[in-house]
Design a protein around this nucleic acid. Structure first.
Length: 643
RNA sequence: GGCCCCGUAGCUCAGCCUGGAUAGAGCGGCGGCCUUCUAAGCCGUAGGUCCCGGGUUCAAAUCCCGGCGGGGCCGCCA
């Protein structure tokens, strides 16, 4: 049920009649929203008017005989045919639709259908989730909720990168301070925060060692360059000192233990290699660390109401299964002319040449220039991309989704494009087209470059805690129960953070701004929550659980008509958001409903109004509540009874 | 150098795909509204060369071409 679409249909019927009179097809003319002062819907007739001079009288003629149901007779103004709704009929249609469909209101046959596998967040299991991962997680989870609302079959997956050198640094460090680390966790520190600190220190110390070696070798040959590097060294040492402040005992111990290890990079690579080979000892150690971080992820994601259907371990799906190596072998077999051995001995797939030859740019949505894709290192180990291809194949084999939506930072455009080209080259052009890279731009901190390796980031936990703290200060007096105060502050904080991250188009680079996240006013999660509570409160005080009967009054207030229109648009907005994968459309629409509802709320009494106003307004309020609740459900902004 | 994204009010952004009338929100500013359904609200007001220059069109923030500015990628990292 899509009330707005009913209006468009009526407009087109009218246009068809007019078209019959002048022997033209007018039904394909665009029907768009009019500027409010001209009506609700508008059709530009400029081109028709140039050729049909007596269009006015024809319109008059047709309008005279046309049976308008939800619309009023249109007016022709400066080349636009403007329609407005018939308030009484249309409110009936809209409100009945909302009240009868309830938690399903918003669904329509314009919604996309199919089976989706959404892979999102997929942060490296080395450190806590930070604000950038939060954008990813909230986008991915919101898309999943949106498509599920549309009736699609949706699975959410977290791809766990447990292979690769980065994990090895964390494992290496963790092994050296295991006892203290566990003590911290027992003391209540989140495990991902503990590992994150260890990882950052280990990486930074490794870099210091690397730099020291370089300086030593340069001292004689190029003293100036050596001096430059000493400057960098200072900043690294400063970074370690900053990290030390978080936990002097642990960091000191770790730095001492790392001291004797000559070449940390070599040691990390050794761990990587053994892990890929399935060395039991190493597997146990890596799993231990990764599981600790995952436990931390889970805690944070649960706060955000984000759940996954599956946690896919890269080592399992791509490496131990032999799939990644198989990818390389198959490429050799199928497209030998495009697989080369690099001077250094690495195996390279010429994705650039392959795409060029088959002219795949539009078909696979590739950027016009593609780098070549390295598949295997000189030592024969796989790279992320290779394993990623294997992972995509695994997903298709296991679940056969119509689409795999992968929420991955925009900076990974090239490897994601290479992945599609490789799938194509492997003989799966269809699968290549079904992989969607849902790109989003980074979140930047004002003035700071976030770096996981240096431990420089604002964690999602901190953001949630700080937002919650501010909310609590604000509403402390309204709650006698500490428990309820805590529950409400938490829900408001989650709503605020989720809304802030999802209300901006994904491709816009975002500057992290505390003022925006903790904005509790308009255009925020809390504003929706507040408005929802107001609506709910009216219905409760009126003793109405659900409106059954109401009469539409003769005259409606402008705010009431505006609300009806916005409610009627909900299915349209849902379908558009789902097909374009733009959850921000929903945030905007919910905000508009809330703004209009609050204007209405100030001006017109509901409970104390006389019939038929009381009944009608109660129905309208309930319809608003349904819309807000449905959209908030998709956005993951919790609804509350009180706040 | 090549490719991708972004450029709209002091600030954060929507609108661009699919061209349409006097370009919209929020924040911040200024001025008002709490014995009446939650003031996290509401009302009013100020604030714009839609980065610049061409082109297409009856019509351009929107489409095309060329610039400029910011960010990103072009790794045997992920």
């Amino acid at each position: 049920m899509n009330p707005f679409d009913e209006l468009v249909r009526e407009v087109r019927q009218f246009l068809q009649r007019v078209g019959e009179m002048i022997n033209r097809d007018l039904t394909s003319l665009p029907v768009s929203k009019a500027q409010p002062r001209f009506g609700y819907l508008a059709v530009p007739l400029h081109s028709v008017m140039r050729e049909v001079t007596n269009i006015d009288s024809i319109l008059e003629d047709v309008a005279e005989r046309f049976e308008f149901k939800y619309l009023q007779r249109p007016r022709l103004v400066s080349g636009f045919l403007n329609f407005d709704v018939n308030p009484r009929e249309y409110s009936k249609l809209v409100i009945d639709a909302a009240l009868s469909l309830r938690e399903r209101y918003g669904y329509s046959d314009k919604c996309p259908r199919g089976k989706f596998l959404i892979e999102h967040t997929s942060a490296n299991p080395l450190h806590p989730l930070h604000i950038g991962h939060a954008r990813n997680a909230v986008l991915g989870d919101t898309l999943a909720r949106l498509l599920r609302f549309c009736g699609c079959e949706v699975r959410t997956h977290f791809y766990l990168n447990d292979c690769g050198d980065q994990v090895s640094y964390a494992v290496l460090g963790f092994d050296l301070v295991r006892d203290v680390a566990y003590r911290r966790i027992r003391e209540g520190r989140k495990p991902d925060h503990v590992v994150g600190l260890i990882y950052a220190v280990t990486c930074t110390v490794a870099e210091i060692k690397r730099l020291n070696r370089e300086i030593k070798s340069l001292e004689k040959v190029n003293p100036e360059r050596a001096n430059e590097l000493r400057g960098e060294l200072d900043s690294l040492v400063a970074a370690v000192n900053r990290l030390r402040e978080q936990d002097p005992e642990l960091v000191d111990m770790l730095v001492r233990a790392l001291g004797p290890v000559d070449d940390l990079d070599l040691e990390a690579k050794r761990i990587t290699r053994l892990y890929e080979q399935g060395d039991l000892e190493v597997v146990k150690k890596v799993r231990e660390v990764v599981n600790l971080v995952v436990e931390g992820f889970r805690q944070t994601l649960t706060r955000m109401s984000i759940e996954f259907d599956s946690w896919d371990w890269e080592s399992e799906v791509a490496v131990y299964s032999g799939k990644a190596v198989e990818v390389v072998r198959q490429l050799f077999r199928r497209v030998p002319n495009f697989v080369e051995t690099d001077e250094g001995g690495a195996i390279v797939f010429r994705a650039d040449k392959y795409a060029e030859l088959l002219n795949l740019w539009d078909e696979l949505g590739l950027p016009r220039s593609l780098p070549r894709a390295v598949l295997l290192r000189r030592d024969g180990t796989t790279l992320y991309l290779t394993r990623d291809v294997a992972y995509a194949l695994w997903c298709f084999e296991k679940f056969n989704p119509d689409r795999i939506i992968r929420v991955i930072a925009a900076e990974q455009r090239h490897p994601q494009a290479q992945l599609r080209v490789i799938l194509h080259a492997l003989g799966y052009p269809d699968l290549a087209r079904r992989v969607v890279h849902y790109a989003y731009e980074m979140v930047v901190l004002p003035g700071v470059k976030m770096s996981g390796r240096r431990g420089e980031y604002v964690t999602l936990d901190e953001i949630l805690d700080e937002t919650k703290r501010r909310v609590r200060d604000l509403i402390r007096d309204r709650f006698s129960s500490q428990e309820e105060l805590d529950r409400v502050s938490e829900a408001v904080a989650v709503g605020a953070v989720r809304y802030a991250l999802v209300s901006v188009g994904p491709l816009r680079p975002m500057t992290f701004d505390w003022n925006k996240v903790i904005n509790l006013r308009q255009n925020s999660g809390p504003f929706l929550q507040y408005t929802y509570v107001r609506a709910k409160s009216i219905l409760e005080k009126a003793g109405v659980i659900s409106v059954m009967h109401y009469q539409v009054p003769e005259e409606l207030a402008p705010e009431e008509v505006d609300l009806v229109k916005l409610i009627g648009e909900v299915p349209e907005v849902v379908a558009k958001a789902a097909s374009d994968l733009r959850p921000d459309y929903l945030a905007e629409h919910a905000n508009r409903i809330a703004l209009t509802f609050n204007s209405f709320y100030e001006k017109y009494p509901v409970m104390r109004a006389d019939e038929p106003y009381r009944g009608f307004r109660l129905a309208l309020v309930e319809a608003v509540k349904i819309c807000l609740s449905n959209i908030m459900g998709i956005l993951g902004v919790p609804t509350l009874e009180r706040m």
